[in-house]
């Protein structure tokens, strides 16, 4: 399910034979675009309003804003764990071998495909173990203003959870959070993703003896 712009026309895009095997740099943009065109769409207003009422409900259910942020992340995580398979089935991306690869894949393909958002990757740290995803428009917060008492609310924290869940399915344990958001008066949104651990698949247990 992706978000269509107001006048988002459905276009039939020929699936270029090569599209499936592409997986580097500039091609990512194209893959995201293709996957967006192929997927089902919902109007952006529907998504924004539904998400808004979801956040509203979570605020009503939990006492502290900190806890609300945590719950949104957890919901996103559960989505991400499932979304990873959907992503590989539909995006044409065939593999994600490294943390570095994941940056391009999440920002260029994932954001485009599921949110119709043009995002970029920047601010790598020296060890290549952390990066930021930057984007201007956030469809989830389309009609949202944060009242002062909710200044600490990370409104779109669900997205962080989704990224965390999906990357965990690729054995990448990451920490993921909003460090800047347009809702809090910054000029753009920034999600910081840092690698905590790279898991290895462990051998099945030997229970012969």
């Amino acid at each position: 399910m992706a978000v269509a712009g107001l006048k988002g026309k459905r276009q039939r895009v020929k699936e270029a034979a090569g599209a499936l095997s592409m997986s580097k740099g500039g091609n990512m943009q194209k893959l995201g675009e293709l996957a967006l065109q192929k997927g089902e769409r919902v109007p952006v207003e529907l998504l924004a309003l539904t998400y808004g009422s979801l956040v509203r409900q979570v605020i009503a259910d939990y006492e502290s804003i900190e806890e609300v942020n945590k719950q949104l992340d957890l919901m996103g995580y559960n989505i991400g764990v499932r979304l990873a398979d959907d992503f590989f089935a539909k995006s044409g991306v065939s593999d994600c071998r490294s943390f570095q690869d994941s940056a391009e894949i999440v920002a260029k393909v994932g954001f485009k495909m599921y949110l119709n958002v043009q995002a970029s990757v920047d601010l790598w740290n020296a060890d290549n173990t952390a990066y930021s995803i930057l984007f201007d428009e956030n469809p989830l917060a389309e009609f949202t203003e944060l009242p002062e008492e909710y200044a600490q609310l990370s409104f779109s924290n669900l997205v962080c959870g989704v990224i965390r869940g999906a990357l965990e399915m690729l054995l990448l344990v990451v920490k993921c959070e909003f460090v800047r958001s347009t809702l809090q008066g910054n000029e753009m949104n920034e999600i910081r993703i840092s690698l905590v651990e790279m898991l290895r698949e462990s051998a099945p247990e030997d229970d012969e003896d």
């Binding site: 071998r97 490294s98 943390f99 570095q100 060890d127 290549n128 173990t129 690698l195 790279m198």
Partner: peptide, 11 residues
């Protein structure tokens, strides 16, 4: 990549 931290073997 030498660090062995962020890169997996080629599949």
């Amino acid at each position: 990549d030498g660090k062995g931290l962020t890169q997996r073997e080629v599949q």
